[in-house]
């Protein structure tokens, strides 16, 4: 029975301290990662749809106009 109390005490102590340690390490890890390795903004994927074609055409037209105006 005494052994049981010992195991209980040691067991809960170890479980708690191990998880507290993980919490601390996690916090450090997260702050380091967030500071030095921030996630790159993932560019929004362009859909190959009608809208894109229109946008491309508009861009092309604008470029041509700009070119012809400048010249």
């Amino acid at each position: 029975m005494e052994l049981g109390w010992t195991i209980t005490g040691v067991g809960m102590l170890v479980v708690f301290s191990f998880l507290v340690l993980i919490v601390i390490v996690m916090n450090i890890m997260s702050s380091v990662v967030l500071k030095y390795f921030p996630e790159k903004e993932v560019p929004v994927k362009q859909n190959k749809g009608k809208m894109d074609n229109l946008a491309e055409i508009a861009a092309a037209v604008a470029a041509v106009q700009a070119y012809s105006k400048s010249s």
Partner: peptide, 13 residues
């Protein structure tokens, strides 16, 4: 929310 790890410890009681 790392501090919820502690809840996982308490439940081992």
């Amino acid at each position: 929310n790392p501090k919820t790890l502690l809840l996982g410890a308490a439940a081992q009681f």
